[in-house]
């Protein structure tokens, strides 16, 4: 087991966003988290890499036990240096070129020499088919290109887990496919991923396990067939049928 979360609770003012989440992720597993907006999916991801601090709960990541409510600075940095994250709105560094966006984490997070970092960054850029854009700034790139660089920025770190926070939600519909293709390729290479997504087709085709998340709780989880074709929970059924009406 690579990651285990135990009883994570998170409250914003009077609003309890996470109501005791338990979650385990195996090495190489792709976990998709689906569910209505505002249900706490993103907050859960942000608690895992300490962009938010939980009110209570604990985590075992690799061999480290971490108190989620009271992580030490070293534990936070260590966790972040073994994970990566892809954001909904890309968050590429606006003052850095595509190549620098990718090499930055190697240079400053992993103390790699600039030259070595650059050559790894070029390989990562090539993998997402954007090597010719290496000297472009984010403002010169489309959303799809930015997000694929966001993915390259994550993979180049060789992280144990990549957290995807609705990676295609801000994209033009026609650009969604390229990003999903990169993610699928990663999954096939055995990259462990937790993906918060509204792309049901991705969850169905790529995820080893799908979790239905609503009102701060995991209401149901299982493989894609179980969740999509044989949901047991009424709330899951309601959500899936509401989505189906879109098509």
């Amino acid at each position: 087991m690579l990651l285990e979360l135990r009883d994570i609770e998170k409250t914003f003012k009077d609003n309890q966003v996470l109501k005791g989440i338990d979650l385990t992720v195996e090495q190489g597993e792709v976990v998709a988290i689906i569910g209505p907006s505002g249900s706490g999916k993103t907050t859960l991801l942000r608690n895992i890499n300490f962009l938010e601090t939980a009110n209570s709960g604990s985590m075992t990541f690799r061999d480290q036990n971490i108190d989620m409510a009271r992580p030490s600075k070293e534990q936070i940095l260590w966790t972040r240096r073994h994970m990566a994250m892809v954001f909904q709105n890309y968050n590429l560094f606006k003052n850095k070129t595509a190549l620098e966006n990718i090499s930055e984490g190697l240079v400053f997070g992993q103390n790699m020499a600039k030259k070595e970092a650059d050559s790894l960054a070029e390989i990562a850029l090539d993998q997402v088919g954007l090597l010719d854009k290496k000297d472009f700034y984010p403002s010169q790139l489309s959303g799809g290109q930015q997000q694929r660089i966001g993915i390259a920025r994550a993979t180049v770190l060789n992280p144990d887990i990549i957290l995807f926070d609705e990676p295609t939600s801000a994209l033009d519909p026609e650009l969604v496919g390229t990003v999903l293709r990169d993610m699928k390729q990663l999954a096939e290479q055995g990259q462990t991923m937790i993906v918060v997504t509204h792309q049901m087709s991705f969850a169905r085709d790529v995820a080893d396990r799908v979790m239905f998340f609503a009102d701060g709780e995991i209401l149901e989880q299982g493989d894609a067939d179980e969740i999509f074709d044989h949901p047991k929970n009424d709330r899951t059924k309601q959500f899936l049928s509401a989505i189906a009406e879109d098509y």
């Binding site: 972040r80 990566a84 560094f93």
Partner: peptide
């Protein structure tokens, strides 16, 4: 989000400040 992105690629807060 710029600061958060810097943190999640493993920068400490000092590097995130000066670089980004």
């Amino acid at each position: 989000g710029q600061y958060e992105a810097a943190l999640v690629v493993g920068m400490d807060s000092k590097d995130a400040f000066w670089q980004i």
